[in-house]
Simulated assay, not measured.
Amino acid sequence: MPDLAFHILLFLFAAAFIAGFIDAIAGGGGMITIPAMLIAGIPPLETLGTNKLQSLFGSGSASIAYARHGHVNLVEQLPMAVTSALGAVLGALLATVVPADALKAVLPFLLIAIAIYFGCKPNIGDVERHHRMTRFMFTLTFVPLIGLYDGVFGPGTGSFFMLGFVTLAGFGILKATAHTKFLNFGSNAGAFVVFVLYGVVLWKVGLMMGVGQFLGAQVGSRYAMAKGAKIIKPLLVIVSIALAIRLLADSTHPLRLWLGM
């Protein structure tokens, strides 16, 4: 496709910065960057591939920020990031042959359920709770499953990782946020490799947006560490509901097509 005009690139940079800020706190950055790239005239497949490139900068930036302040040990979490990446590779390969209509149909309701869970459970804070699953089993089962979902479809991945860390691993919400970012980095990397092999990554756009993502994630992660559960919980609820509404508002959503809306 032809080079984008400077003002369009500036618009995409700003969208990436905002997405990086929000994603570092509650996930859901793709809710901003994917529509922005489509508005800019980038074809859907190239949008997905380029989104994975720029998302690497945001999730990587947030991971570094949280690690520097002791909220996550990246070396210890590396096995989880690897299984997340492997799941995403399989998911991205499946995305080329398996229709995503079933996922699109059920996803808004899953996101609303996550919003209700975090919004109505008052004892979710920064304190760790009982672990319902060992780290080993969590790494081998839940993590690659969500990574696979990220490769197939993607929206809401951060919310699902957060839910798993809080309910299964027993993490406090700030620690869960910190660990989610590195797993997002892993799933982004895995899917990105597949999109590169298919030649659908716009490098200039992705790298420019990546700078915006990196800076936004630095600001967002610092804000989350300063405010803790007081900002993470409400923003997670808002982002989950907003993403659900956006998906349901899409004229191509399977539920709307089935209902003839």
Rank of each mutant, 00 (worst) to 15 (best):
I25F: 10
R68E: 14
L168G: 09
F57V: 05
G28N: 04
R256V: 06
A178Q: 09
S55T: 10
A217H: 03
L148I: 05
P144H: 01
I64S: 07
I22L: 11
G41K: 03
E46S: 15
F171I: 08
A189D: 05
V219N: 01
I18W: 08
V98A: 11
A67P: 09
T139M: 14
S61R: 06
I64E: 09
P234K: 07
M137I: 13
A113N: 03
L248S: 00
P79R: 03
G60A: 15
R135Y: 12
H71T: 07
I241T: 08
G151C: 01
R68P: 08
A105K: 07
G151P: 13
A244T: 03
I34H: 07
I124K: 00
V106E: 06
G172D: 01
A242D: 10
V127A: 10
H71D: 07
L48E: 07
L53T: 11
I25V: 12
Q213P: 04
A169W: 04
I241F: 05
A217P: 02
F57E: 07
I112H: 04
R256F: 06
P2N: 15
S251W: 08
V82K: 03
G147P: 03
L257G: 06
E46I: 11
A100V: 10
L145Y: 00
L145S: 07
A191L: 02
L259R: 09
A249Y: 06
L202K: 10
L111W: 00
L215G: 00
N73I: 00
V97I: 14
D126G: 04
G220Y: 05
P108D: 06
F136P: 10
G151A: 00
A224C: 09
G60Y: 13
A62S: 15
A67S: 15
F214I: 01
T141C: 07
G70D: 03
G216Y: 01
L168F: 14
Q213F: 08
F57W: 11
N184I: 01
P43C: 04
P108I: 01
S187N: 08
G49S: 05
G170M: 06
G91S: 04
L90T: 12
I116M: 12
M31H: 04
A113T: 07
A40P: 10
G147E: 04
A5I: 08
F21I: 09
L145T: 07
L38M: 13
H131D: 11
L168Q: 12
K233V: 15
M137H: 12
A5G: 13
K230W: 09
A102G: 07
A92E: 02
G212T: 05
H253V: 10
S221R: 01
F161Q: 03
V143Y: 01
A81R: 00
L183T: 14
G210L: 12
F182C: 06
A19E: 13
V205R: 14
A19N: 05
K175W: 03
D3S: 15
F6E: 11
G87N: 01
Q218R: 06
G158P: 04
L45N: 12
A229E: 10
P155C: 09
I34E: 10
L140D: 04
D126H: 04
G60W: 12
D250Q: 09
I241P: 02
H7R: 12
I25H: 11
I238N: 02
V219G: 02
L255K: 10
R129Q: 15
A81Y: 00
A169F: 12
F11Y: 15
G125N: 07
V166I: 15
G190S: 04
L255G: 08
S187R: 05
Y149G: 03
P108Q: 06
V72P: 00
